[in-house]
């Protein structure tokens, strides 16, 4: 439908609005009710008088809707907007140890295996190196501050503690340009293992974390050890790690 000619002719906003008001008073029948009476758009965009929203009004309302949605959900990823995070599926600070969990140990069916005191971490390169829990915790520990980002859109900063992955790789004589696979205790599922290429495997910020925010990792965050690397999707930050192998 095209703009009504008398509206496109121009004129100052005030005049148009008063004219609109007068028309409104006179509007009686249903037909006119629907066709008449412009506002919100003020006729600036040449909007024809309508029963309600003008085109500009519609654009403003739609833009407002998008803005309200962004404002009330973006807080799940943007720390500054966290107080407004009212309608997002996650809150970056809600979860065990102040961090959300995507997949629990129970859902991954590793709760028993991960708690086993006989747990051993194996790093298999040219040499095979094994660590029990005590040895794992005796390794030189580093602390890094890295965000974890889930493919579902939420992300949160956290402080991670544990040995550097590259130190473990060196101990097993894994070459610096090698791609490795990090394997979880999970028996099944598409995310039970992930490949780590050299850029991430050799990054000094990449840890096989055993601690989170000043305490031991909780089961749902990947106890006894999990991968945490910079700039990597959450599903590939493998939890409940028990093997690292050279590919």
């Amino acid at each position: 439908m095209s703009a009504a000619p008398e509206r496109t002719a121009g004129g100052r906003e005030g005049n148009l609005r008063r004219e609109g008001d007068r028309r409104r008073e006179g509007a009686g029948g249903a037909e006119q009710d629907l066709e008449d009476q412009g506002n919100l758009g003020n006729g600036r965009d040449g909007a024809p008088p309508t029963g309600g929203l003008t085109r500009r009004g519609l654009a403003v309302a739609t833009g407002t809707a998008a803005a309200v949605i962004v404002a009330t959900t973006a807080g799940q990823a943007v720390p500054a907007l966290a107080p407004l995070d009212l309608l997002a599926p996650r809150r970056p600070d809600l979860g065990p140890q102040g961090l959300p969990v995507n997949r629990t140990a129970r859902a991954a069916r590793v709760a028993v295996a991960a708690r086993d005191p006989g747990y051993r971490l194996e790093v298999v390169g040219t040499r095979r190196v094994g660590y029990d829990l005590a040895q794992l915790h005796a390794l030189p520990s580093h602390t890094v501050r890295l965000p974890i980002t889930c493919v579902e859109g939420w992300s949160a900063d956290a402080t991670w503690h544990g040995p550097r992955l590259r130190d473990l790789l060196d101990a097993a004589l894994i070459p610096v340009d090698a791609t490795i696979r990090v394997e979880s205790l999970e028996a099944h599922g598409g995310y039970r293992a992930s490949e780590v290429r050299p850029a991430h495997a050799r990054d000094p910020l990449t840890l096989l974390a055993t601690g989170l925010n000043g305490a031991d990792l909780e089961l749902d965050h990947g106890y006894p050890a999990r991968l945490i690397a910079p700039d990597r999707p959450g599903v590939l930050q493998t939890k409940w790690v028990h093997r690292v192998v050279l590919l």
Binding site: T62, A65, A66, I69, V70, T73, A74, Q76, A77, V78, L146, P147, T149, C150, V151, E152, G153, S155, R197, P198, A199, H200, D203, L205, T206, A229, P230, D231, R232, P233
Partner: peptide
């Protein structure tokens, strides 16, 4: 091969992905 820096790159792209998707609903 994806770089490991900046450390927040994926955070930004995935945050944008979900946020722009949600904002697209009214549009």
């Amino acid at each position: 091969s994806w770089p490991s820096r900046p450390v927040w790159l994926y955070r930004v792209t995935q945050g944008l992905h979900v946020t722009t998707g949600l904002a697209s609903v009214p549009l």
